[in-house]
Amino acid sequence: MGRIPRSYLLNRVVTLLLTVWIAATLIWIIPRLSPVDPADIMLGRMAAGAGAVENADQILERLKENFGLNDPLVIQYVKYIGNVVTFDFGLSTATFPTQVSTLIARALPWTVGLMLLSVVITFFIGNALGALMAWDRSPKLVRVAIPAAMVFTSIPPILSGLLLMWILAAKLRWFPLTGAYGLTVEPGWTWGFVQSVIHHGFLPALSIVIVTFGFWALGMRGLMITVQGEDYVTLAKAKGLRPRYILYRYMIRNAILPQITAFALKIGLLVAGQVLVERIFAYNGMGKLLYDAILDQDFPVIQGVSFVIILMTAVSVFLVDLVYPFVDPRIRHDGGDA
C-alpha cells in the first residue's frame, strides 16, 4: 500500500511498451501475408469510376512509390514503427488521400463517448443487479425479474438493436433512427447540439446495455454466492451489523474485485466490441470506421484502428495494475501476493 515503488512502475511500463510494440509488429506483418495488393484495389476502384484507366502501369508504379511498397521490408518496417510512434498510419486507400489519423481522430470521440458511457453504465447496473440476485434479503420480485431480463442477453446485439429501433424510433418515434446527431444542428458546444447527441446516442447505448449487462450480472452473482459463504460474512452478521452495510462493505466490496480486472479488458475492447451496433445505427464511430475499412480492404485504416484498440487495452490493463493494490490490500505493488 501507499506509494508505488519505482521498480514496480518501471516493470509495468516496460510491459506496456513491449505489448504495444509486439502488437504493432503483428499488425504490420499480417496484412503483408495477404495476397491482395492495395494498389491494385485502388486502381480497380478508379477503373470502376472512370471506365478504362490510361497508363495503368505507371499509376500503379506511382502508387507503390507513394506507399513506399518498393522499399526493402526492413526499411518499410522501420518507417512504419517511426510512423506509429507519431500516430501516423499513412493515407486511407478508400478515401484517398485522407490521413488515417484524421479519420480516427474524427471517429474516436464518438465511440469513446458512447461506448465508455454505456460500458460504465452496464458495469454498474450489471453488478448491482447481480449482487441483488444473490443477496438473501432482496425482494422476491427482484430475484424473479432479473433472471427474466437476462433473456435479452442471449439476443444478438444486431437483433435487439433492430428491435429497439423498430419500437422506440419507428413506431413510437421517441428517438431518431440513425446518426450521431441531427442533420439540422451545427456541431459545436451548443446546448442544442449536446441535446441532439444525447438524443441520438440513447438508443445505441440502450441496446448495448441490455445485451451486455447479463455478463456482469451473472459474473457478479457467482462471486456474491462465493462471498456469502465466507467466514467474514458470517462474523459480520454475528456482529449485529445492519444488513445493507454488510451487503456493501463486506459482500459487494469483496465480490467486485475480479470484476474490476474484467472491466479493464472490456474498456480496451469497447472500440471493436460494438461494430454491429454502430453499423446499424449509422453511428460514425470507430466500429463503423473499421467495418467500412474491412469492406473496402482499406489496410491503413484497419491497421490504425487495430493499433488504437491494442493501445487502449494495454493502457487500461496498465492502469488497473497500478490501481488494484489500492483496492485489494492483499496485492502488493512489488508484485508478490501475500
Binding site: 467466514d231 462474523l235 454475528a238 462493505r249 474485485l257 485489494d328 492483499r330
Partner: peptide
C-alpha cells in the same frame, strides 16, 4: 451474545 467463529483464518474482511 457474541460468536467467535471457527475459521480464524478467514473471519476478518480482507479489504478492511
Amino acid at each position: 451474545v457474541s460468536y467467535i467463529p471457527q475459521g480464524a483464518m478467514n473471519s476478518l474482511n480482507p479489504v478492511m
